[in-house]
């Protein structure tokens, strides 16, 4: 369970979150919605511990997994290596096999697994980034716009995987994809634009 209490975040004088409180259960799908610039990504960053410049309280020390909106893949690694690097402390054969299986299930071909990020399309990079987040064993899975660069078929595949994942752990999803809102398991969190 992760709790946020009276979280306030501002960039200079511009408030993004104002006394935001919420409790996330140990499992479930939480879909964060709001206008652009309302603070959705900021909220995710605070939960992930990447942004510590805020007031209020949050449950600390919880490991998270994160599929970033900008993918953030490592240029010198192949698609497969980028996914299997989440195994701790070093990549092992078991994780690599899981990573391979996951990437194939997300529609990448065997040849594409050995390509580096520069050689992948936007949609492929997005699927690699999602696979990396899915593979990491952490109680909280954060996904920022995971279907942004995907076609309809791949978007639906990802959303169904996310929904399945939310049965085992807390999944926090930021999206503008209306299909995510209609998922039966989805709990909607609306972030108001303060400006």
């Amino acid at each position: 369970m992760i709790k946020l209490k009276n979280v306030t975040k501002a960039y200079g004088k511009r408030k993004i979150l104002d006394n935001f409180s919420y409790t996330f259960a140990d499992s479930g799908l939480y879909v964060v919605v709001g206008e652009s610039g309302a603070g959705k990504t900021t909220l995710l960053r605070i939960i992930a511990g990447l942004d510590k410049a805020f007031t209020g309280r949050i449950t600390e020390g919880i490991r998270v997994s994160y599929a970033f909106q900008e993918h953030r893949l490592f240029d010198t690694l192949s698609a497969l290596e980028n996914v299997s690097l989440v195994s701790f402390p070093e990549p092992n054969a078991k994780t690599e096999a899981k990573a391979r299986e996951l990437l194939i299930s997300l529609g990448l071909t065997e040849e594409e697994l050995s390509l580096r990020p520069k050689e992948l399309s936007g949609g492929m990079k997005q699927r690699v980034s999602i696979a990396r987040a899915l593979l990491r064993e952490a109680p909280i899975l954060i996904l920022d716009e995971p279907t942004k660069e995907l076609d309809r078929q791949n978007s639906e595949l990802i959303l169904s995987l996310i929904e399945k994942e939310s049965e085992k752990r807390t999944v926090i999803l930021v999206t503008h994809d209306s299909r995510a809102l209609s998922l039966p398991a989805a709990k909607i969190i609306k972030i108001k634009n303060l400006h």
């Binding site: 994160y66 900008e70 953030r72 490592f74 690097l85 402390p89």
Partner: peptide
């Protein structure tokens, strides 16, 4: 900074950070 944040999230060791982010 984006990659160092990703390394933080995925708890990459110092050795891997050097190899994947700093060295290149």
């Amino acid at each position: 900074r984006e990659l160092t944040e990703a390394a933080d999230v995925f708890e990459l060791s110092r050795k891997r950070r050097i190899r994947l982010i700093y060295f290149p």
